[in-house]
């Protein structure tokens, strides 16, 4: 659910980074934060445990610029990936405009990816959304590691609908902004359809 404010001439959209524990959702946001100019970004809020595992969510507001006199802002959220934080994950999906699924490319995380994607579908359905009808971008993270599943196989396992997918190394930033641009564009195109 985006928020369009005619008075302050702002369009605010909510994008959620979803995926299994330790797949690199927070790392995506940290890289975006690091590489965005101070005028464009707000504070990066991380509600994390002492061991830096996300407890509730990370939050980063970024301003993209103007579009026909309207300021366009994205609010980026991550969910806690660990299985037992299911209740929190569901809450964060409330009012989402677009979803990025961050998959961990390592062979041993294949099941975790599938499980998390299923969890995403269920939690969206609980909020009355269908993944197929939402702006959705896939990201295959950790492509620099030696034991990764080939992209073609990830595509067939996780991306049967062939939504845009990006190879990524969130720690070095490869693919991070490509993913963000893609989901951002999809969200705005979707809004354009409705208004």
């Amino acid at each position: 659910m985006s928020f369009i404010n005619y008075s302050s001439r702002e369009i605010n959209c909510k994008i959620v980074y979803y995926g299994p524990g330790l797949c690199g959702k927070t790392t995506n946001l940290q890289f975006i934060y690091k590489k965005t100019s101070p005028q464009q970004k707000g504070k990066l809020i991380s509600l994390a445990t002492e061991t830096e595992r996300t407890l509730f969510f990370d939050f980063l507001p970024i301003a993209l610029g103007d579009m026909r006199g309207f300021k366009v802002r994205f609010h980026l959220y991550t969910v806690p990936g660990q299985v037992f934080y299911a209740a929190s994950r569901k809450l964060i999906l409330k009012g989402v405009d677009g979803v990025v699924f961050v998959a961990d490319s390592q062979i041993e995380r294949t099941d975790a990816n599938i499980e998390s994607l299923e969890d995403l579908r269920i939690n969206l359905a609980d909020q009355g959304y269908e993944l197929e009808r939402l702006p959705f971008t896939m990201q295959y993270n950790k492509r620099d590691l030696p034991n990764v599943v080939p992209v073609a196989e990830l595509d067939s396992l996780l991306n049967p609908d062939k939504v845009p997918a990006f190879e990524c190394v969130a720690t070095s930033g490869r693919g991070v902004f490509e993913t963000l641009k893609n989901i951002g564009k999809q969200v705005l195109m979707e809004l354009k359809k409705h208004y």
């Binding site: 579009m67 026909r68 195109m189 208004y195």
Partner: peptide
């Protein structure tokens, strides 16, 4: 609908943002 901020926005405008 013509008053919507999106009414005049083209795909190019969206591209431009990115």
């Amino acid at each position: 609908a013509e008053l919507s901020p999106f009414a005049e926005i083209t795909d190019e405008d969206i591209d431009q943002l990115f």
